[in-house]
Design a protein around this nucleic acid. Structure first.
Lengths: 150, 150
DNA sequence: CTTGAAAAATGTCCCGT
DNA sequence: ACGGGACATTTTTCAAG
């Protein structure tokens, strides 16, 4: 992966565009640009292409980040937690982190009552949780999926 | 936006696919499917299409979530902070949150030394910061941009 | 790498119902 | 709102310099 590949990736991370446009921006003709993109896809460097939605417009008015601590740090408990977490569509992200707590969850729901129900009836039912601390997003100043590439 | 639109959005959130495929999955022919997608784009419900990259394969080995507290909660200080934050490509996300701290940042860099330099030479130089608390991601159990739609 | 070409697949839109 | 069909654009592959 050279500097041209990185330029191509930066373009595609920002927005979908056809090969001709990408080619013009990186200063190559269509054929090699096309081949580079295909190679990046085959290598799995490009994982895929997705549509991003407007959160407000689809009625997800509440986003919260929840810090979850487990009772014990046993392998079995952790993997069971991770498995159960995967089944909840309200949980968009779940990261196992170092520090004062164990997992950081990103949760998106329609409104506060729905959030309340989710925490009480779904999340807190999962075994092994010691405590949950939630921070509500009031404003997303920056929200990007773009990794910086030189 | 009806149930068919939501099905279309669920498909496109998961992966790019041509109109014919989407049409088959939602049980319509190509034309109405095409028109629905265009309408969702025009309404801004679909914000855009982007490529997602493999974090490991592009050499971003370190992701951290940083909790930032400001010294004072003044309008000017907050908006200046938000403005400066936008200029750092290492910061992929910045959310103004309620709770014990003010901002939650998602930061991606190549390695620990780079993280160290970023915190000391860039982030902590921003005016008005009271303290920064970092949690390193050890494993992303779930990482999705998909909002659940009925 | 570049240019050019050409077939196959899609995207796009007009006109029926 | 939906479906069919016609046309434009892109994708994809290939050959030659």
């Amino acid at each position: 992966m050279d500097s041209t590949d990185r330029k191509i990736l930066m373009e595609l991370q920002h927005s979908r565009q056809n090969t001709k446009e990408v080619a013009a921006k990186v200063g190559l003709s269509v054929t090699p640009t096309y081949e580079r993109i295909k190679k990046l896809e085959q290598q799995g460097i490009i994982r895929g292409y997705v549509a991003l939605l407007d959160r407000e417009k689809i009625g997800k008015r509440v986003v919260a980040y929840c810090q979850v601590s487990l009772l014990k740090h046993q392998k079995e408990l952790i993997s069971r937690f991770e498995q159960e977490i995967g089944a909840f569509p309200e949980i968009m992200e779940c990261h196992h982190v170092s520090g004062n707590f164990d997992f950081l969850l990103k949760i998106a729901v329609g409104d506060i009552p729905e959030f309340h129900r989710f925490i009480n009836e779904k999340l807190s039912v999962v075994e092994g949780i010691s405590n949950i601390h939630s921070a509500f997003v009031m404003n997303s100043v920056k929200e990007s999926s773009v990794y910086e590439l030189g």
